[in-house]
Amino acid sequence: MSATHLQSSPFTVRRGSLAPVLLLAGSVVLYVGAALWTGETKMLDAEGVVGLLQRMVALGVVALGQTFVILAGSIDLSVANMISVAAVLASYIMQGRPDMVPPAVAAVLAISALVGLVNGALIARLQVNSLIATLGVGLILQGLLSASFTNFAGSVPPEFQLVAYSAFGGVPYSVAGLFALAALCAWLLRATRFGAHLYAVGGNAEGARLAGIRTDLILIGAHVICAVSAGLTGLYLASRLRSGAPWVGRDGVYDLESIAVVVIGGTLLAGGRGGVAGTLAGVLLFATLDAVFNMLGVSAYPQLVLRGAIVVLAVAAYTFRAKGHVA
């Protein structure tokens, strides 16, 4: 298994896994269909499509991180809270001053890496169930954050807002950043020893351990990557909202949605199989649904009801053929 990963190019779609292609085709049909049906054809020009891609950024970045964790057979439910912490911390440290941008970014990256380290150590070393460990860490983060901040804290200087609002040759920096990050993740998974070991740990942790892989280090590594990606999403949201508030992560339901898009993209929830292409396609589907709901004028609450149903059905589309028992 790891040998084929090492040989294949980082960007090829896994043979036998049509999920990303189907999701891509489905999203395009849905988007174009809704635009034509509602007569909003301006959604189909370059600007409209870039707008669609920009909807992908926040969820996309954190979902890329979640892909690593799920591939390793773990899960991270603390990402939404981590995103809030990152967004608030960034804007609080910056206080609208451009010279404080580098220390703020460094602080966010350091803290998110530390949170990932704690998650990973709890799961790999203390053998705490991954759902509970990350749920607990999420609660701890949210409690500390909400006790310290009750509203938008600080602000982001205009220079940092360029991250979300500026573009080069029609392509926003944020969209380019998402795809660059995706390429980096694909390379990590397909072309490095760490990636090969990650698939091995997710496929059969005990087998990987017996083969001499330091499964604990791989798990910790995956969790650090995931938490840092949540930190990056927080930075992006702070830039887009011009300030961070303690509820930005929870309001975005990033914990559930990042898991949902990874699973919809064809990555097994049990770990060991899947990849970046599927996750990106899943994120595209969710961004498309958002855009389509808006074009059709579905209001916020029915959207919530539909979203819940769509998440379950989309995951069920993969799971209902499973032979064994699922709890």
Partner: peptide, 13 residues
Amino acid sequence: KTPSIIATLGTLL
């Protein structure tokens, strides 16, 4: 056969 954690999170929404 959807894991209950996903199924009930969907119901939650």
